[in-house]
Design a protein around this nucleic acid. Structure first.
Ligand code: ZN
Ligand code: ZN
Ligand code: ZN
Ligand code: ZN
Lengths: 367, 367
DNA sequence: AGGGAACACTATGTACAT
DNA sequence: CATGTACATAGTGTTCCC
């Protein structure tokens, strides 16, 4: 699964995103995850149990909070307990089936019924493969490259520091909101497979999908930054979009998906989507001449990302939870599109069109 | 806030429900919460930060997972940092404003701007009072007295162990489902204030509300026990209620509120409710002769519990989260009532009526 | 009774040897 | 390079003392 774009030297821990140095137990991890895995995957003695819903998101910050989910992720990523030398936990699936068999009978006269990890390791069709985890990681980093949330936060602080007149405030709000739409450009730039598409296809995708993607991004960002809790900001939005519209949008933002990884993967599927974001009729008609839907390359990319999304959902939330989350996310996105249809601010629309033009220009030139 | 019923000697930790031994820093807690509070509420040096959404539910099992939320709960319960002797954290709100002032300047030449805990301690109107926390605790224990979930789990295991013929299976399913409705009786029995009502009022409340309460209880239990994941059970339910009805109920159960404390408090408000669960017209008309709604005692009890519920929601999820949770919970309950209206099994209805009669008989006799 | 001190225990992360 | 070992550090819960 080679990428067309040079993605930064992949030296981040696949488990927690901390800096990694080398492969450990078959997976690129940081030192702490390495130690963690050795300690916990070794003996089946203590069954780790999640105190929440077994769907904790593991990051450098949160990895300490739930050992059960951390271990689950380690195993899901393919870390191999058989490579732990001291422990007798054997695993005869891949190349190195021959290990020191003598040490096995030494200390383990205790009970040893450990089906859990084995079943987790079983690489059936519903488990994310190594390549898929890598792809997922690249998607996340494509999004984080721009670091929209931090940038928006910075803008917000600037906005708060200098109390200016209404006209300037409006401009700053536009700048803030525009950030979320502009962020689609670097995201697409670093997104695996995007550059393998033809100029025409890229252009059509940007034309059709950028508005929806930016809006979803903005809603997620507004939720993360609690934008609607910022009175000054909200009042200025009233001026631009009308009070009712803003309040309805706030209700929408409160329903935002909270799992950032999921949002980023969903944005990816939107990026390659051929039948969404029909916000303005004029937009969609401008480009139906090119036969985008018939592009086989595009169809295969869609498949890859949608399968990855679904596997991630199942891994993270279980089958039922996956259904629920996806249902919620799709409905959330559809409501966002509805919201866009009711938007009246000409200034906003003009801004979006400029951003779309810029993005097309930038992403269909060099290769 | 005295209770009419003898509730077990209150020796459970208000923070985590572990066994408590005595008051610590003004609140009834266990030894570990005592130690925890001393260690973390002392110096404002390290700000504890929740790795999730600052709404972790603290129990004996989960208390170790999130220190931030544990401390938050300690403070919300009224534990007093001023009573920590070694630390210079002064607090001049209540009686003992005079403390050893000499020790203050000793070790703390470091910075000391700690507004967070102080603001949390401020006993404004939106914070649960000591009495309310106690009341909440009593409600929880009134529910847990019967331990429905465990009982149902046991029944389920029995059901699975002996493969019997369809008729017997049906009986067992009825027994299982009936458990959730029968559990309302001990709940009401131990529920604070219920016994202060007149016989007539109690009877009408049971007649009107037991069905809805039991159904909510069953949905919550089904969610907790993953009943709809049990194929054998589900198939028998098909026989009784029809496949479509069961599948719709499963979707409903998946939307269940997950916070048990919240469910129990909501059940309490339902218990005293005068205008809900109008499932069958015949039911409500049988008792409109007694002027239930005009009972002042009942109205005041309703107020007490609804205020407590709301304060708990705000404490646990913040204002916005409180709104969302209550909204979700109310809709969930309304949909359950709709579900009951579409129920067709005469056997089920007969069973419920028997349970209602039994409950009335049992709870309007002795006092 | 309700404070604190001290200890034992566990989990984590890092430095370094193999 | 990837493993294990050893140590430093932190958090928790219990026992005991005042
Ligand atoms: Zn890591
Ligand atoms: Zn977890
Ligand atoms: Zn406790
Ligand atoms: Zn928390």
């Amino acid at each position: 699964m080679s990428l067309n774009r040079p993605v930064r030297p992949p030296k981040l821990c696949l488990v927690c995103d901390d800096f990694a140095r080398g492969m450990n137990f078959d997976v690129l991890t940081c030192m702490s995850c390495k130690a963690f895995f050795r300690r916990h995957a070794a003996q089946a003695g203590k069954e780790l149990r999640c105190l929440l819903n077994s769907d904790c998101i593991i990051t450098q910050q949160t990895r300490g909070a739930c050992s059960a989910c951390r271990l689950k992720k380690c195993l899901a990523l393919g870390m191999n307990p058989a490579l732990i030398r001291s422990s007798p936990k054997k695993l005869k699936n891949t190349t190195q089936s021959q290990l020191c068999d003598a040490s096995i009978e030494e200390k383990q006269i205790v009970s040893l019924p450990q089906p859990t990890t084995l079943s987790l390791l079983a690489k059936d069709k519903s488990t994310l493969t190594f390549d898929e985890w890598n792809l997922l990681s690249n998607v996340i980093h494509a999004y984080d490259e721009k670091n929209v949330i931090t940038a928006a936060q910075k803008l917000l602080r600037e906005q708060a520091s200098l109390p200016v007149k209404i006209r300037a405030k409006k401009m700053m709000v536009f700048e803030l909101i525009g950030t979320f739409f502009s962020a689609v450009k670097p995201f697409l730039y670093y997104l695996p497979h995007f550059h393998s598409l033809s100029f025409d296809v890229r252009r059509v995708l940007i034309e059709n999908n950028l508005n929806g993607m930016g809006a979803l991004n903005a809603m997620f960002g507004a939720y993360e930054l609690k934008l609607f809790g910022n009175d000054s900001h909200v009042r200025t939005c009233y001026e631009i979009y009308g009070e009712e519209y803003v309040k309805e949008s706030e209700r929408l933002a409160n329903r935002s998906e909270q799992n950032g990884t999921l949002v980023k993967m969903f944005l990816t599927t939107l990026a390659f989507s051929t039948n969404c974001s029909v916000v303005e009729e004029s937009q969609i008609t401008t480009s139906t001449n090119t036969s985008v839907t018939s592009s086989i390359a595009l169809t295969r990319i869609q498949d890859v990302f949608i399968i990855m999304l679904w596997k991630y959902l199942v891994y993270q939330y279980g089958y039922l939870g996956a259904v629920r989350h996806l249902d919620h996310l799709v409905k959330f996105y559809l409501d966002i599109l509805n919201r866009l249809n009711e938007l009246n601010s000409k200034e906003h629309k003009d801004m979006i069109n400029v951003i779309i033009d810029q993005t097309i220009h930038s992403l269909t030139l060099d290769d």
